[in-house]
């Protein structure tokens, strides 16, 4: 398969180029080819959240045109992203925001977690003796309910211990809350609106939720969340790692059967 990596430009801009490296590595280990997508990859829905509903359609159209060109020129079969927002907006399977508005990508889009999940039977993992705290990205987990897929993939990695991102105090059985309902956001979006604040928010989330659990790393299914956690770890000088979901999987993935 030829896979277009969506988010190629965002990661270096956010200071997390390692997400691209890990994504490329995963794709190669799985025997596919990758096509980078150098573009303004903020998703059209998100520009609306930022107060520019008037740019949603122009950006969606421009993105679509650009993607269509690359897809046809590079003979792309699939679009893959480590970011929740574009997946949430463009996924036909999930009836995304832009799909509801009448836009359709020429080929399917997958989030890294859903892509791996769909190939789970073939994936070969080596042991990864780590204890991690899994952060469900706000859009991917809380909003879209993509929660089983990332967990099932991680469950296949030998010796990896996965803890949920939650507060036991919040559980009252009648409320039926799940870890992804109550996981705290490290504030990745602040980078676009109030960047001075982001490291404080992220480091506090790590201090309150991750440090008491004595984990080796906090791992986010959202690229944006990861970049906030990375800033938070640095800011708090914490003795744990922040990792993107793709980076963690890449560490353990040996290849496909």
């Amino acid at each position: 398969m030829r896979i277009l990596l969506y988010g190629w430009d965002t990661s270096p801009r956010l200071g997390v180029p390692e997400i691209c490296d890990a994504s490329v590595s995963i794709i190669k280990k799985m025997g596919h080819e990758y096509v980078p997508h150098k573009s303004k990859v903020i998703c059209a829905e998100a520009i609306g959240f930022l107060g520019y509903d008037n740019l949603v359609d122009p950006l969606a159209k421009a993105t679509l045109k650009e993607v269509e060109e690359v897809v046809s020129k590079e003979d792309v079969d699939l679009i893959l992203t480590s970011y929740a927002a574009p997946y949430a907006a463009w996924s036909k399977e999930r009836n995304g925001f832009l799909v509801q508005r009448g836009y359709e990508l020429p080929v399917p889009i997958e989030h890294m977690a859903t892509f791996l999940y769909k190939n789970l039977d073939k994936l070969k993992f080596k042991e990864l003796p780590m204890r991690i705290l899994l952060h469900d990205g706000c859009t991917l987990g809380r909003k879209m309910g993509v929660v089983e897929e990332p967990r099932k993939v991680l469950a296949k990695i030998p010796k990896l211990e996965v803890l949920n991102f939650d507060h036991p105090e919040l559980y009252v059985k009648e409320r039926n809350l799940k870890p992804w309902d109550i996981s705290a956001c490290p504030g990745g979006w602040l980078d676009f609106t109030l960047p001075e604040l982001m490291p404080y928010v992220a480091s506090n989330v790590i201090r309150e939720y991750a440090l008491p659990r004595e984990v080796d790393a906090v791992v986010s299914t959202c690229g944006n969340g990861y970049h906030a956690f990375k800033a938070g770890v640095k800011h708090g000088k914490f003795p744990i790692k922040a990792m993107a979901y793709a980076n963690l999987v890449d560490m353990a993935l040996e290849g496909v059967e």
Binding site: C138, R142, L170, L177, D181, C185, L190, L194
Partner: peptide
Amino acid sequence: YTCVRCGKCKVM
């Protein structure tokens, strides 16, 4: 613009 729109408030 300080709100991160994470949606936890809505759930809770």
